[in-house]
Design a protein around this nucleic acid. Structure first.
Lengths: 149, 149
DNA sequence: CGCAACTCAGTTGTGCACAACTAATTTGAG
DNA sequence: CTCAAATTAGTTGTGCACAACTGAGTTGCG
């Protein structure tokens, strides 16, 4: 039987944990002049370059209202450029500049720093990640049913 | 050995889960005309009324830069009022209005809805909550050491 | 073909999160 | 007692998250 007590609620724990992690990233990413969402976009591009805005949005679950200004800032910072597709003028392809590619080296140590801070072994990380993914999917499915897109 | 792959990272799972939950709350809270952070403040006040802004900040880990405008909106909505303390003119005490107290009834069913959406039994919730709290504390301690307040 | 429905990126407006700052007040060391 | 340091709430500015919308471009049905 769930209550209205703040302490009982998983959602608050999630909210607090997410903000704590973001705030650690803020410190760690200061050196790269990136925010955490910008870092996520760079991660996606380091994994696979030359992506459409739509593809980035699908991977990160972000819409153009968030991505467009963010990408514009990354472009201003000289890390990416954007080109309208010739074959479909609606689409925009995002590519890493040399500076954007080079930044990867500076980012190489970050996952270990975060891992250390979390104080979890690989198995713990994998298990928690799996639980969170399951939670996300379950919650999204429920919301979808409540308020169809 | 941590990598820069998006899929491996616990932090992204956390970020995605937190946003999924918030987005479910958006639907559920529509009826109460509250945002999720506003709901958290109301939860805190339903538990204990007549709190100082400082106390709310400590419980929710939010500073006055976030709380002041949020509380102003709750006041405009007629749910709370704010009074400077007589014995310490720096402090402001936040109290529920009758409408604010009454809103609790409408909120009563929310935790169960969220619980259902998460599809976790009580034990699962408790375990996950404990893990998240441990993670938050560990990460905050690390950040504190890296960048002392 | 013609055009209505859809797709994609971008814009606008609201609210949160947070750093950096201000202003008013209180506290406490000397 | 005095005044410098600390405390408290609020303000300002930046960036994210997201709903609602716009406008350009594409698709496909009749």
């Amino acid at each position: 039987m769930a209550s209205l007590r703040l302490d009982d609620q998983l959602c608050f724990g999630l909210y607090a944990a997410s903000r704590a992690v973001t705030s650690l990233y803020r410190v760690v990413l200061e050196d790269l002049d990136l925010t955490y969402p910008q870092y996520l976009v760079m991660l996606a591009l380091w994994e696979r370059d030359h992506r459409l805005v739509k593809e980035l949005g699908a991977e990160l679950n972000l819409d153009s209202g968030t991505l467009s200004p963010l990408l514009k800032r990354l472009q201003t910072a000289g890390l990416v450029f954007r080109n309208r597709q010739a074959d479909d003028e609606r689409s925009v392809r995002v590519s890493l500049s040399d500076a954007g590619k080079a930044l990867r080296t500076k980012a190489e140590g970050i996952p270990d720093v975060i891992g250390t801070a979390m104080n979890l072994d690989d198995a713990g990380v994998a298990r928690m990640r799996a639980e969170l993914d399951r939670l996300t999917e379950s919650v999204n499915a429920y919301r979808e049913a409540l308020a169809p897109a």
